[in-house]
Design a protein around this nucleic acid. Sequence first.
DNA 1: GCAATAGTGTCTTTCAGACACTATATC
DNA 2: GATATAGTGTCTGAAAGACACTATTGC
Lengths: 247, 247
Amino acid sequence: MTEADFLQGYDPTPFDRPSVTVDLVLMTVVDGRPAALLQQRADHPFRQCWALPGGFVGMAEGLDHAARRVLADKAGMHQTGMDESGAWLEQLATFGDPARDPRMRIITVAYFALIPADRVAGAVAARTDLTLAPLHLAEDGALTALDNSGAPLPLAFDHAEILRHALVRLRGKLDWSPIACALLPPLFTLRDLQRVHEAIVGRPLNKPAFRRRMLDTGWIEGTGEKESGTSYRPAELYRVAAKGDAI
Amino acid sequence: MTEADFLQGYDPTPFDRPSVTVDLVLMTVVDGRPAALLQQRADHPFRQCWALPGGFVGMAEGLDHAARRVLADKAGMHQTGMDESGAWLEQLATFGDPARDPRMRIITVAYFALIPADRVAGAVAARTDLTLAPLHLAEDGALTALDNSGAPLPLAFDHAEILRHALVRLRGKLDWSPIACALLPPLFTLRDLQRVHEAIVGRPLNKPAFRRRMLDTGWIEGTGEKESGTSYRPAELYRVAAKGDAI
DNA sequence: GCAATAGTGTCTTTCAGACACTATATC
DNA sequence: GATATAGTGTCTGAAAGACACTATTGC
């Protein structure tokens, strides 16, 4: 029997199957702190709790595609120019505890997106069910998302755990990938980049050392242009280098 | 309506769903090279090709549990003592291209296990459909699994891609986690550990520097015991320290 | 003593942190 | 010129690579 014959007679129906969703941790930096986009649930379960934007994976749709769709639709972003302009999207991990959703067995593939704060702010301001919640990682590893007053937000499902993974991953990749550039506009100064790094690692960094390190990596390149609108010496504008390594 | 009421009336059936499997990259070091356990397929599709051991995720079973079950069953290992003695198991990534399996939509969560070579060798020798294939990562990033004669093995599905991810992950974690110790017996010498590191990174390492680095991390601790059976000066035996950090 | 490897002392190089200094814009 | 920040020169200390040396076992 050839493989083609085999496939023609194959019955794919006998077993019960879990549902598969994609959840998106859309992170950015607001007021010097890492923050994630959360959506307040209108329905049970976990009504009124805050959840990551997500959606079911279509039967003919790849996982990355589903994540991109959630980024464009549910997260309230406009699809226009989302990918070209350097939104960082990568798979984070998959969460499949049988009890993680009380309705039914749902396995979720968590993704991790980075976008400059100003690109998200508009969508958040236009909708009351969305918020950019600052994240706080305690010494003991517990993660909390905070509201405007600094009080912890109630999180739905296992989303606190997913957020924790995302923040740990973001911190871990800072030193060996140009990931932080995805949180800045296409043109940025080294000061801007340093502030993003400081927000994520949670402590001040040494200026000359940071500058040396960034320029040595080859991740970014100077444009020769300078920023404008400052009342002091304007800094040079940089952009992500064409040969920035992926993954 | 309370959440309990909602759940009682919830109908989880309406949508079509993908199948979800777990695939296991069981890696070890053989003859100074990284190698992975592969199983030759007896059936279509990809008959005669080599595949990662895997299995469907049960409806009431967590992902980690499924991976552990595959490690114990399909990989031909005996369950006895598998976890206590430090087999490393962690989630790698999830692969869900709609066309990755010609039968139907199967999303697979890949796991990554590390076991000392001698623990796998017995199971492999006892079965003709299992092999420990040395892995070769080319300069251009392409991964090939080799047979005894050094010829590339034909790999099923997207398993070459999964193997590539596993080897890249293993290399990346070497420097900041005690992961390599999982490829050695409970007691080992610093020379053994260095050889494992050299096998994975693919180049010789400096002895004093390696020794300093390993002892400074606190990942391992000396036992005071020495190896026996050598015809030269016996080396001290080390073990993984009790406070070795996880993740 | 010989062979073989374990384990260490130390020099050099490299790189991060720290600090002070110079440079350049607006006002 | 005052001010504020950009950007750099240089010292110091920590850690890696390299090499040679001493130590300890079996034969």
